[in-house]
């Protein structure tokens, strides 16, 4: 029997090595897998390359991961926002590398990785500073820039519900990057709000089929994973 449900986020993230490329779903706070990020901080992997649309706000979530000094490089579209002081301090101190990527290219480069596409030409950023040094081509009179896939080792995503085969559905705009990150990653770990029996999710409604998902965990309130660890030792 295949059961992708693991007892805890700590179990699901245990094998993430130093130097891994980790994609984290979410757009602002919507779809941000806060419990998985907390478990990643507790797990201790270092020198990570982080792929996420934003670079954290306040002092929790992605900002806490950055603050703990675990991220060497970040690929994102919009790191500068209200409350992104942790990222800003690291960036100004030269302690984190930034690759700034137009949001649609971020999504499409992840999708390309998931679909085995070697590279693609996109009109986005043609003629702008973000296309400097990149191969370009004019096709049918329109300028395009060559972009390469972003291959991901681990994707940490949030879903509304999932079953033991890893089929997932999402909630409202919390879906955002999660389906393409799940496709791009060799190992996708989903934190689900509800664990369903097989067959409970309508096959017509499944957004991410289980083939793209390695492990699922029941979502726990942020703070509980750390508390468990402290109890253990």
């Amino acid at each position: 029997m295949i059961d992708k449900l693991l007892p805890s986020a700590a179990d699901a993230l245990a094998d993430i090595p130093d130097g891994a490329t980790v994609a984290v779903g979410g757009f602002g706070g919507a779809g941000m897998p806060e419990d998985l990020i907390e478990a990643l901080i507790a797990q201790g992997a270092r020198e990570l390359t982080l792929v996420s649309n934003n670079a954290g706000q306040g002092d929790t979530g992605l900002a806490a991961l950055l603050k703990a000094g675990r991220v060497r490089r970040i690929l994102c579209s919009y790191p500068r926002m209200t409350g992104s002081h942790v990222f800003e301090e690291l960036y100004r101190a030269g302690r984190i590398e930034l690759e700034i990527i137009p949001q649609g290219n971020l999504a499409e480069r992840l999708r390309a990785a998931g679909c085995g596409i070697g590279a693609f030409f996109t009109p986005t950023a043609y003629g702008t500073p973000l296309a400097e040094g990149k191969e370009t081509r004019v096709i049918d009179g329109r300028g395009y820039v060559l972009e390469y896939p972003i291959h991901v080792d681990y994707a940490l995503i949030n879903a509304e519900a999932g079953d033991r085969w890893g089929n997932l559905i999402y909630r409202k705009t919390a879906r955002n990057f999660s389906p393409v990150m799940a496709m791009a990653a060799r190992h996708t770990i989903a934190s689900v709000g509800r664990v369903c029996e097989l067959g409970e999710l309508d096959p017509e409604q499944v957004v991410t089929p289980g083939i793209f998902v390695k492990r699922i965990v029941r979502r726990t309130p942020v703070g509980s994973a750390t508390a468990d660890q402290q109890q253990v030792g």
Binding site: F27, G29, G31, A107, E108, L110, T173
Partner: peptide, 30 residues
């Protein structure tokens, strides 16, 4: 807070809406 717009402000949907992931969303543009 799962129901926000691109400015990350909470919104209230009228009937007839559809959700989709980021690659489809930007596919609608390009």
């Amino acid at each position: 807070w799962d129901m926000i717009n691109a400015g990350k402000e909470p919104i209230l949907l009228a009937p007839g809406a559809a959700f989709f992931h980021h690659a489809d969303s930007f596919g609608m543009m390009r």
